[in-house]
């Protein structure tokens, strides 16, 4: 099922269209020295309860841990280490090594030096880009060179049609942007002033829509940025 969003053109017509991320091109793969096929596998290197902190809890002090290491192999679970990892579930683990069954997410704010400045309960942030709520036409056009030199476009999605009508709809948008040689600012909310958030608790982005036309074909790409090209304080 293609992923859908709802956008509006400059004539205030809106439509559901699909979005697609760039395909990751496999540029190379690995073989062995004898041209044999190889595969990357994950193996268990160590398990909970066998690291230094766990041994310290068991034996009391570092001297006892040292003696235990001389006497045996308490740091390795011989049944599990070296085993293929296989399918696993991500879990949260407490300091004492036990699994957390009831998690509490906190929002912790740190300054650029990494020092915590505040913390409080985490509040879910809802997505602003959905199949139903139409992203409005902002009308704010920017020269392409200005966008490229001001913003880091670290995410991109291509807009594609889902039927003949949406093909014409998107083609006209692309044609308009191509003729103007500009990109239009895309935001959420009634005035396009809110950031684009594609999933709950996702990163907020500002979007710039680019359009190109070649004959009867078009290319519409929504470029996403959450970073401006600015001086970083050293």
């Amino acid at each position: 099922m293609p992923r859908l969003i709802n956008i509006t053109d400059e004539r205030k017509r809106d439509a559901q269209v699909s979005i697609a991320s760039p395909k990751r091109a496999e540029r190379w793969s690995y073989i062995g020295p004898d041209s044999q096929p190889v595969a990357n596998e994950r193996f268990i290197k160590a398990t909970e309860g066998h690291d230094f902190q766990a041994l310290l809890r068991t034996h009391g002090d570092p001297r006892n841990v040292s003696q235990a290491l001389i006497d045996g192999d308490p740091e390795i679970d011989l049944e599990l280490v070296g085993r293929r990892l296989g399918e696993v579930d991500r879990v949260w683990v407490r300091k004492d090594g036990s699994i957390l069954y009831s998690a509490r997410p906190l929002l912790v704010v740190s300054n650029p030096a990494g020092e915590e400045t505040s913390r409080g309960d985490f509040v879910d942030v809802e997505a602003t880009v959905t199949e139903d709520a139409a992203l409005p036409w902002s009308g704010k056009l920017f020269p392409i060179a200005e966008v490229v030199r001001r913003f880091v476009l670290g995410r991109k999605v291509q807009l594609r049609h889902i039927n003949g009508l949406t093909f014409d709809f998107l083609f006209e948008i692309a044609q308009s942007l191509h003729t103007a040689n500009k990109m239009v600012l895309v935001g959420a909310g009634p005035k396009a002033a809110k950031p684009l958030i594609f999933q709950s608790n996702g990163s907020p982005f500002r979007g710039f829509l680019e359009g190109r036309v070649e004959g009867d074909a078009f290319l519409l790409v929504l470029h996403l940025s959450n970073l401006e090209l600015k001086q970083v304080e050293s």
């Binding site: 290197k45 990892l85 683990v93 407490r94 300091k95």
Partner: peptide, 27 residues
């Protein structure tokens, strides 16, 4: 107290703390 992410094998036999998985190429 902050918690860290670990991996629990599907059979429940092992709890793998972060940094305890090796990635190797095998034939």
């Amino acid at each position: 107290e902050p918690c860290v992410v670990g991996f629990l094998t599907r059979d429940g036999a092992a709890l793998i703390p972060p940094g305890c998985v090796a990635s190797l190429y095998v034939d």
